[in-house]
């Protein structure tokens, strides 16, 4: 479904990601882990088109997406969340979700300016779909609140809802459990499993919380200094010597 070939991104002389070969098959839940600064978020930025790769290919459903703009890649079925939450702060919770449906449910500019029937229909449809999604995540009672006024955990959840509203086939989650306590993390795990089935999603997830990664991922890639140092099932990764070294240092 999604494949990268020898994907490389260099900032000056530093290769943040080098020769990355990644593969996501339909319906999989794959984890991307590694120490701080290993290049995980850079991988996400490459996949979503925020960065242009220095070298290599990114193939989404048989087609190269290198050089495509982020909004074009979104329209091909990829959506993401951010490590440092990036909501539209001044907008309401509902409007945040509605924006993500803009690319597939927009109505024309003339009908907007003249308030034709298609404007009202379009708005109604967008609102209904957005509320439906918010209900699933228990955020519907806060739909009129300003996004920035939500507590941290709910902001994280709203980001996931917003990404889902973009109708992705592949969902990229950048540290969804960051800043959550063990109980919240557990809820989140259940939630991720649920949305994967409900929305028929393929998920790639960056995470530091090992209980979460080991608990739900089917395959894991371990990144260190921009290179894949290990890759396999959670069991294999747990016992991999290089991974333990990367995390704990040599001799551990």
């Amino acid at each position: 479904m999604l494949m990268t070939k020898r994907l490389t991104k260099a900032f000056g002389g530093l290769a943040a990601v080098s020769n990355l070969d990644l593969e996501l098959r339909h319906g999989e839940l794959v984890g991307l882990i590694g120490p701080n600064g290993a290049g995980k978020t850079t991988v996400f930025n490459l996949l979503t088109g925020i960065y242009l790769p220095t070298e290599g290919e990114i193939i989404l459903e048989g087609e190269s997406i290198v050089g495509k703009k982020p909004y074009q890649i979104t329209a091909r079925g990829m959506a993401r969340t951010f490590q440092n939450i990036r909501l539209f702060d001044s907008l309401s919770v509902l409007d945040n979700v509605k924006i993500a449906s803009h690319w597939h449910s927009s109505y024309s500019l003339p009908s907007t300016l003249l308030r034709l029937r298609s404007y009202y229909q379009g708005e109604k449809q967008m609102t209904e779909k957005a509320i439906e999604l918010l209900e699933m995540f228990n955020l519907d009672d806060k739909k009129d609140e300003q996004a920035s006024s939500l507590p941290y955990g709910e902001q994280r959840r709203l980001e996931i809802v917003r990404a889902l509203a973009a109708k992705p086939k592949i969902l990229l989650l950048d540290e969804p459990a960051a800043g959550m306590n063990p109980l919240e993390t557990k809820d989140l795990m259940a939630l991720i499993e649920k949305i994967r089935e409900l929305f028929d999603l393929t998920i790639l997830l960056i995470e530091h919380d090992m209980s979460l990664v080991m608990g739900i991922c089917e395959r894991i890639y371990v990144l260190d200094y921009g290179k894949v140092i290990a890759h396999g099932t959670p069991e294999e990764i747990k016992n991999n010597k290089r991974v333990i070294e990367a995390y704990l240092g040599e001799g551990a």
């Binding site: 979104t74 993401r80 951010f82 990036r86 702060d89 409007d95 924006i99 803009h102 690319w103």
Partner: peptide
């Protein structure tokens, strides 16, 4: 709203399909 999303967070707007 697309315009406002650009003001609020351009990177997020772009990755949400704007």
């Amino acid at each position: 709203r697309a315009c406002i999303s650009v003001r609020d967070n351009e990177i997020a707007a772009e990755t949400m399909g704007i």
